[in-house]
Design a protein around this nucleic acid. Structure first.
Lengths: 233, 233
DNA sequence: CGAATATGATTGTAGGACAATTTTGACAGA
DNA sequence: TCTGTCAAAATTGTCCTACAATCATATTCG
């Protein structure tokens, strides 16, 4: 039924990108559910699967562990990270201030260069239109929305910092449970945030963003224990 | 004149910590000025210097690159990171909200468990005493102060996030220019922050911390171009 | 059935090999 | 003296092999 889809590395690719290739393969696999949270990643299997050396795989593991995408336990190996309820709460607290900052900066800088054009272009494609939105499309819209805000904000390090917040993991872990009402709510929030940014009102933008994330956090944290990794304390 | 101080790896150390050993050696070297910002790190030199394999060194490079401590350019190698003025500003913006959050959380949780005891103990050792403080002692106090606040705040991921903010780099790059007046000012700020936290006033704590960092940022950003990496745009 | 043990799998680390690429240093010409 | 060119040397990226330490699993024994 299913074709053995072996992703061998395109060998005409330039030297120097092997590790990145491995990382992307793994991230992709996580996002598409091919590697489930908690699953162990065996180095040698991956070397065969992708036709790269074990050294490159290990480097990719280190990188991803530093970014919090996997857990690396000495002598035991690497597993796709799963967040506990506590960690999820901590993560949202951080996300709230970082994305709040991003929204504030975006509102401050909406009128420099072609920021307004960029933002409006994004907003035209993700603006709520009332009709039902499939989960994976919403996820895509959501990502684009948040990334554009960070981008307009103009703080490059902030982009990295937010990227390193293991959001993909959380979304995979938790996102499939999102119901239509949540999507609806999020889209409304987005509209409020977009308004504030387009108005160039930093305070209102930051607050709207923080409210948005706090709501989302409340909903996520109300999920049953089964959605989270067991607390290990 | 100078003794050839070769830090060979203590071989009775348990298996599984080689990479961490390399990282620590490098971070130490950076902090102590043995590796200057901008300096290139040659893999093979390090393998000989520390008696570890090249693979381990490469893994350490990846880790540090992910943490922003070094720049890793394909085919060219690894250099100790140097921040541009722009990056420094971006960094302070992020630090302001993250440490502001830490201070807020600390004030909220100062009365749970033995947090108050821990905080007061820290504060007894770093509290300003009026007499002149050497730069490196101040740096140590400063680190302890900020880390304790994060710790009392109780958000473990926040600790990681702040650690990954390349503060060591910035301090090395910029810190040696700190004059007594800056140290004085910082110590005053610390007292204000500590008061707010001990009073359990989250809003005041966060604001005091943010003010502290904003002042520091203003001072750092007023330094001459020579303190920063050339802007590459 | 539970505990001890043997067996196999996987990791951590060292080290060699070799082509791709960059850096260095020498050299000729302006 | 400066500058561009080119070969030599150094360094990187990647793969490979090897082997002990450690973990996971199956098996045997009580």
């Amino acid at each position: 039924m299913s074709v053995e889809l072996v992703q061998e590395r395109n060998s005409d690719q330039r030297r120097g990108g092997t590790v990145d290739f491995v990382v992307q393969h793994l991230v992709d696999g996580i996002l598409h559910g091919r590697f489930a949270p908690g699953q162990r990643l065996v180095a040698r299997d991956l070397t065969e699967e992708m036709g790269v050396s074990r050294g490159s795989v290990r480097e990719a593991f280190r990188l991803m562990a530093a970014d919090g995408l996997v857990d690396l336990v000495p002598n035991k190996g690497v597993t796709v990270r799963r967040l506990s309820r506590h960690q999820t709460r901590d993560l949202f607290e951080i996300r709230e201030v970082l994305e709040g900052l991003a929204a504030k900066l975006a509102a401050q800088r909406i009128n420099v260069n072609d920021n307004r054009a960029m933002f409006e272009s994004m907003w035209r494609t993700v603006r709520p239109r009332g009709h039902h939105l499939a989960w994976d499309i919403f996820i895509e819209h959501n990502r684009l929305f948040h990334r554009t805000i960070v981008s307009v904000g103009g703080n490059l390090l902030l982009k990295d910092a937010i990227d390193k917040l293991q959001l993909p993991i959380m979304m995979v872990q938790v996102g499939r449970m999102m119901a239509d009402e949540n999507i609806q709510q999020s889209e409304n929030d987005h509209a409020t945030i977009a308004d504030a940014i387009l108005d160039g009102d930093p305070g209102r933008a930051a607050e709207a963003m923080q409210n948005h994330l706090r709501e989302l956090a409340d909903w996520v944290l109300a999920l049953p224990d089964s959605a989270f990794k067991r607390e290990e304390n």
